Simulated scan of single mutants.
Amino acid sequence: MTDTTETADSPAEATDKTAKLRRLHRIEGQVRGIARMIEQDRYCMDVLYQLQAVRAALAKVEDQVLKDHAASCVEQAIRAGDPQAQRRQFHELVDLFGKARR
């Protein structure tokens, strides 16, 4: 869930954000490299290995964003003692991961 409130990032949050962005920029470069490999008619297995590497790198970013969500949005709903907000946070995650399996 996107938090629309304006808050300053703590030093740890800023470092985490920088790390995620750095990883995403690296992935972006990998994807451009894969496109070049396809343009150059490189060996299919080489392309597949690179695609797997991108998938694994994206999974790491996804894991970190999920942890951040649990540590902020979900934790906030729990601390607030709002059962409706807790259910909403839970159902958002279930819906998201349900779509990913299709």
Rank of each mutant, 00 (worst) to 15 (best):
Q40D: 15
A35F: 09
Q52P: 00
E39R: 13
L21C: 06
V74N: 02
E28V: 04
R22C: 03
A53C: 02
M45P: 08
V61G: 05
Q40S: 13
Q64W: 04
A80D: 11
I78G: 03
D82C: 04
L51T: 08
Q84G: 06
A85M: 11
R22P: 00
L48V: 14
D68K: 03
V74S: 04
Q84K: 13
R55N: 12
Q84M: 11
R79E: 13
V61L: 07
Q52A: 09
A70N: 00
E39K: 10
G29E: 09
K60H: 08
I38K: 08
A57N: 13
Q76C: 04
A71I: 00
S72Q: 08
G33T: 10
Q40Y: 03
A80Y: 01
V31K: 04
C73Y: 00
A56D: 14
V61K: 04
M37S: 07
E28Q: 12
A53W: 02
Q86W: 00
A70V: 06
S72A: 04
L48I: 14
Q30S: 12
G29S: 09
K20P: 01
D68P: 00
C73S: 05
L66P: 05
V65C: 10
Q30R: 11
E62A: 14
I34W: 04
V65M: 15
M37Q: 14
Y49C: 01
E75P: 00
C73P: 00
Q86K: 02
V61H: 05
A77M: 06
I38A: 13
R55Q: 14
C44Q: 07
D63G: 12
R42C: 07
L58W: 06
G81D: 05
V47Q: 07
Q50F: 00
R55D: 13
A77S: 11
R42N: 08
K67T: 11
D63Y: 08
E28C: 04
G81L: 05
A35K: 13
L58T: 11
Q86P: 02
E62M: 09
R79V: 09
A59D: 11
M45Q: 12
R36K: 14
Y49M: 03
V65A: 13
Q50G: 01
D63C: 01
P83I: 12
R55F: 03
C73I: 00
R87T: 12
V31N: 03
G29F: 08
